[in-house]
């Protein structure tokens, strides 16, 4: 299956590798038209401000918002979560796609020295998952329609709202493919099989 990786900035290669390992073909999305050729999209980690600037400069912003509104399954990691959210708590002037009904606080754990790794219990997975939180955002508020799939320190770190998934951690930095698999199986793979 053709799965897009938003190829604007960030750890694009790691997500592409995860998708390839799951026998999908990664498509590197840099043009709005390419959004029509994919069954789902992954938004990598990176800097949300840099991605926002470039997506708006190159007409990807509105096109992506429209595709997601029309049902394109999307999974955002870290910066991807920030972009999908309704609002950034501590930088309210930062534009977001407003497709996921959560409000986030950016860099909420502190500077890089406070970035950490830990293991998480994930709803629907038997074994714990090793997760990397890197200058990660925290989901501060969420609507009833947002399903919480994992928590850490009392706040959600993996959420789902319909076909939209988002995590504040980076599964692509490990060789653990279970989150990518869960995302694809519960959105696109099942639908077509």
């Amino acid at each position: 299956m053709q799965i897009g990786v938003l190829a604007v900035q960030g750890d694009i290669r790691e997500h592409a590798y995860s998708l390839e390992t799951l026998d999908h073909t990664p498509v590197f999305i840099r043009e709005p038209e390419q959004l029509n050729d994919i069954q789902a999209l992954v938004m990598p980690g990176g800097e949300s401000t840099a991605m926002t600037v470039l997506m708006r400069r190159y007409c990807l912003w509105d096109a992506l918002k429209e595709s997601i509104s029309n049902g394109l399954p999307v999974y955002g990691t870290c910066a991807g979560l920030v972009l999908l959210s309704r609002r950034v708590y501590n930088y309210p002037e930062q534009p977001t796609l407003r497709v996921l009904n959560v409000e986030v606080e950016r860099n909420a754990y502190g500077s890089q020295a406070d970035s950490f790794e830990t293991s998480l219990k994930i709803k629907g997975l038997d074994d714990e998952l090793f997760a990397f939180f890197i200058r990660a955002p925290i989901i501060r508020t969420w609507d009833n329609g947002v399903e919480i799939l994992a928590e850490h320190g009392g706040t959600p770190v993996l959420v789902r709202q319909g076909n939209t998934f988002a995590s504040s951690f980076h599964p692509e930095l490990t060789h653990d493919l279970r989150i990518h698999k869960m995302f694809l199986e519960s959105t696109v793979v099942r639908k077509t099989s």
Partner: peptide
């Protein structure tokens, strides 16, 4: 348990700069 400043946390942060200036 949270572990800070590990090799993967440091190296992983640098991965986030990729394709950037």
């Amino acid at each position: 348990m949270e572990q800070k400043g590990t090799w993967t946390v440091k190296k992983g942060f640098a991965e986030m700069f990729k394709n950037g200036v």
